[in-house]
Design a protein around this nucleic acid. Structure first.
Lengths: 227, 227, 227, 227
DNA sequence: TATGAATGAGTATTCATTCAT
DNA sequence: AATGAATGAATACTCATTCAT
């Protein structure tokens, strides 16, 4: 609008970016709703209001949109995590409340979860995709693992399994619960995730104090031995 | 049945049953490997050694095999549970060891889990299928919920959420972990499930005794209030 | 019709064979007219009066029809040759008249030639096809080479190049002339082929008698040295 | 053109010419390798290092590049022929050695031959193209025919068919042999063409002397009667 | 002139399903 | 019950060409 940056100049690049963005967004919605295999390129193009050729002007193949979504997924998750990770010097309560709000988000985030499941399923089938996927996944798991580790450290407790494994398990729980969602029933995902988190903390040993106390309460199940 | 042709009669029925059984079994394997959408009826028929027509002599549609698998799934799960449920008068340790062995099975049971995921995904998409699926699912969740409830009762503890919800969460965890399986990496599913179970028990309140003890250890997270 | 071979029995197999034959025949016509690349499976199916699926019930791929045509081509050519080859003890004039009639056929055989060119072109591009093609081609060239060799032997002359090479050259000439055909202009193929054949015979040396006589007449061009 | 910018002006035109030339050259290579139908405009543009738009800035359609190639083909062939034709007063041996060296060229000229075949095939299919093609073809055939006629005249012989027809036949032979080329096998094209040429000369009648001598040797095949 | 995103028709191939045998 | 040829619609992807920039 200003004299130095007239609107018309950017119009072309912008319109290209818009096309691409609309296709990506439509693809995400359809993948979530109908699955990757259940979504055709014609569906995506039609729904986005373009021709099939427009799709192929922007992506080399159907799988490449999925990769694009994967990248977006990764960035969103990373941004999410950085909020929690950068909380140096905060009290445990603050981290917990961060996690709590994160868990609450999940209730409204069914789409992301379903997309994540589609990504995982496709990775199980396409070796090409699997390689790219694993990188993103491992990075995310490591990031969430660091948050988990930090939380236990702040509480002065030994986590009952490798923090990364626990991170993976929480993601598994999240995805599995997303899969159980049925229209019309309330979704207890966020609440249940916190219940499990509280459980882990409760069963975590105090490194120096008597570590067996909790285990005793938990019956005959021995605590996680190593860090 | 008649004395002159006792075998033939049976053999014909048997051969039909065999055809059907082989088709179902082949379908299960292929659905697990390639997904429901990624498996064609020709694939199933070819792999089972029959014609496509044979498939349609046994099933009205592709979805009907999935229903058949669902029924088999249900039966298998129910049988599994009844081992644990019928253990009236057993000590908590015994139930826990049952659960432990069940968790161990999961490591080798990736196929059932993947099938379960396929069923869930398809239920999300096909209303016809969803109704049938929900019945089975609810029954199974209720059954596992009863086991969970009984376990907590035996331990004299209040579960930190509705036993049925906890049951659903464990199934979610199991499925989510199955999805994360990557060829070549060890699968920690069984171990992690037990870690989470121990956590729940550790964080469960002793109904009459001082209920805050665990919560105190777990920091500022209040325990699950109601049963 | 007879009681032992009722018509109805064969009806199914026959109708299948008919479908296949019609598709092959339509494919040949279209390949000749529009080329292999210029002919779509939809074209073939539509023109033959079937669905595209019917095509794929009969052939695994587009290339496979071409292979089928190749086989037919081979058989027709072989049959053609056996007429000439089996003429043991015939006089040279008879062989020549056979060849003359064969050359005459070519005028009406533009289709076979164009098909042959399509086959050769496709062999240049598809390694899969090339292997199958080369076998057929070599066999046919060897067969025609034997006819050529026998002809020169009967005339008591030494051929001016390896009979197989000469055979290849005559086929090349035939194909090249077919390519030159233009609607509306008379086609001199058959006549020209015979002109060239006469030339070869005229320039062939008499093995024992003065072999240089012809060469002398032909100017400074030395005759083909080896047999 | 102006003294201040003599280079720039020219360089722009030159660069346009260069773009065009590169596109034409790339098109030729790809048509030879993959055929006209098997080559896309994107292939040409990409391989030449330009955009598809650049192609359409230089050619109105895909067929127009083919026409351009046809013109270049014609010029190259005409240049080739003028070497031979302008040799007034040379001895027959010289003409023959010219032809011999031309035939030798063919061995390395598979590309031109394949292009020629593509042109002929396309002319058979596109009426637009056919008209243009026929002009070029007829001119070239007439030119080569004149060379052939002159050769026979110098040898004092009557050609066994119209010189133009013989010219066409030699081109047919050349193209047909090019089509037979298989990677890894030696190419006998040049040698065989000379063998056929020698044959024609050997079978050509001496106009005034006893014309039947050769024919007698060639068995019962009567010589070409008319000029 | 040159760009390359976008179009719309077309490509080979696959699929769930039907039906005469 | 079992066969498998045939259907018709769908699938991922390609192509010559257009057009705003």
């Amino acid at each position: 609008m200003s004299p130095t940056t007239p609107r018309k100049r950017l119009s072309r690049e912008e319109s290209q970016a818009q096309t691409r963005a609309r296709l990506i967004d439509t693809a995400r919605q359809l993948f979530v709703t109908n699955g990757y295999g259940g979504t055709s390129i014609r569906d995506i193009a039609d729904e986005a209001g373009y021709s099939q050729g427009a799709f192929y002007s922007n992506f080399a193949s159907k799988e490449e949109v999925l990769l694009e979504l994967l990248r977006g997924h990764m960035e969103a998750e990373a941004a999410h995590l950085s909020n929690v990770i950068d909380s140096d010097g905060r009290a445990p309560e603050q981290i917990l409340s961060e996690l709590e709000s994160w868990a609450a988000t999940l209730n409204n985030d069914a789409d992301w979860c379903m997309l994540s499941i589609e990504l995982q399923l496709h990775a199980n089938r396409s070796p090409t995709f699997a390689a790219e996927y694993q990188t993103v996944w491992d990075a995310h798991r490591a990031g969430l693992g660091r948050v988990v580790g930090r939380l236990f450290a702040m509480l002065g407790r030994t986590p009952p399994a490798e923090p990364e494994e626990l991170a993976g398990a929480f993601m598994a729980l999240t995805h599995g619960l997303a899969l159980q969602r049925v229209g019309g029933r309330p979704d207890p995902s966020g609440r249940l995730i916190l219940v499990f988190l509280r459980g882990l903390i409760a069963s975590a040993g105090l490194p120096d104090a008597a570590p067996g106390a909790d285990a005793e309460q938990a019956g005959q199940i021995p605590p996680y031995p190593g860090g």
